[in-house]
Simulated scan of single mutants.
Amino acid sequence: MKFLVLIYGNPESRKVWDGLSEEQKKESMVGYTELNNALAASGELVVSHSLDDPAATKQVRIRDGQPMTTDGPFAEVKEQLAGFYLLDCESMERAVEIVPRIPEAPFSIVEIRPIRDLNSLT
């Protein structure tokens, strides 16, 4: 089964990150590298990426058949999507087991969402 693991940041988690020493930030990035390597070795990692600042985004809405764009950020909430993992693992329980290994998990919100196989609908 495939699961999308969404990592959200907010002003408080950004303060935590900004308050870390350069060595602690480096250790955190090593943690991501180790997690990516372990998930790749187990065959569970499909892809993982960090996302750019929400201010760099565009929101696209289709109105009267035409795309209308607006510059970001857009969310009326504090949490912003910061990065993700796409995993292919045996169960939701296994995906939940992986989350504590994400270096930002202790001070962020992490959501796990099953991926629908749209091919099975046809």
Score class of each variant (00 low, 15 high):
F3M: 04
I7V: 14
N10Q: 02
E12I: 03
R14D: 13
G19W: 01
L20Q: 08
E22N: 07
Q24L: 06
K25Q: 04
E27A: 15
S28C: 08
S28E: 11
V30Y: 10
G31S: 03
L35V: 03
A38Q: 02
A38I: 10
A40F: 12
E44T: 00
V47W: 00
S48M: 04
L51I: 04
D53V: 03
D53S: 10
A55D: 09
T57C: 05
K58H: 13
K58S: 07
K58R: 14
V60W: 03
R61S: 15
R61G: 08
R61L: 13
I62M: 05
R63N: 08
R63H: 08
P67M: 05
M68H: 11
T69W: 00
T70R: 04
T70D: 12
A75E: 12
A75Y: 07
E79T: 08
L81D: 01
A82G: 15
G83Y: 03
L87Q: 13
S91P: 11
M92H: 12
R94L: 07
V96I: 14
I98P: 06
P100T: 10
P100V: 09
R101N: 14
P103I: 00
E104Q: 13
A105V: 12
P106M: 03
F107W: 13
F107S: 00
F107Q: 03
S108I: 02
E111Q: 14
E111H: 09
R113V: 06
P114A: 11
L118K: 07
N119L: 15
N119A: 15
S120E: 15
T122I: 09
T122C: 13
